[in-house]
Write a protein that binds this DNA or RNA. Structure first.
Lengths: 121, 121
DNA sequence: GTTCAACTTGAACTAAGGTTCAAGTCAAAC
DNA sequence: GTTTGACTTGAACCTTAGTTCAAGTTGAAC
């Protein structure tokens, strides 16, 4: 598999794959006449990393994560807690947006329902 | 209220408040001898904006949002859908992290539970 | 033996969302 | 009348996560 095929297979651009490799998120692949060659399993790793990233982990965190560190368990637990908080944030924003849909013509902030809703947080 | 007091009250740094004002997210406040003076209601607006931001809206989107636009309802609905997708991403990452907690010693990607879990998405 | 697509590199550039800095102003306290 | 603390400005800087570019190589196809 070349980098282009891997990009195609995962939906992650080749430029990003090189970037991740340079920054230590991906193992250095075999080369044939200068070009990177990947085993099919490489795609799985990329997709997993992308999933972590979509959840808001930074590349730095994902990198740390792959090293079998002493603090790894604690890090993971902390991250889960953080994600729970972000889920709450998303729920709050959805509530604001739904109010905003209803108080259509008003300033999105002065709507009295906002105050009521936010008071409950 | 001075900008420092507003920052204190909202938890948003004064530098960020100035930045938001420059970028059209906040109304231009009154000045007394050159300094910005805010009504107490200003704090509420700041907290609402921050909540939107924590949900992943860009400042540009938040700015658009405050102008009573023709497409506003559609924008809001699109945003709600986007947030739902992001909630799903968070749930996936939580699942990966929980597996990672259990397959403690292994490479976080080669754990077979990953493949099973991700196959269900 | 040339053309072509896909790859290679390092360096520069982008975008968002701020923060930090230098240099200065202002009002109140002492 | 000077010290203090909080404010003012524009400009420069920062981080994250890449993308884009120029210049070059490679193998396969024609």
């Amino acid at each position: 598999m070349t980098i282009g095929q891997l990009a195609e297979a995962t939906g992650v651009p080749a430029s990003a794959i090189r970037f991740w490799e340079r920054h230590g998120l991906l193992p250095v692949p075999e080369r044939r006449s200068g070009q990177r060659r990947y085993a099919p399993e490489a795609a799985e790793r990329i997709v997993v990393l992308r999933t972590y990233q979509q959840a808001g982990l930074t590349l730095e965190e994902i990198r740390e994560f792959q090293r079998d560190q002493p603090h790894r368990q604690a890090m993971i637990r902390a991250k889960i807690t953080e994600i729970e908080q972000r889920t709450v944030d998303l729920r709050h924003a959805t509530q604001l947006l739904e109010h905003a849909l209803q108080c259509g013509e008003e300033d999105i902030v002065t709507c009295p329902r906002f105050r009521d809703t936010m008071a409950r947080w």
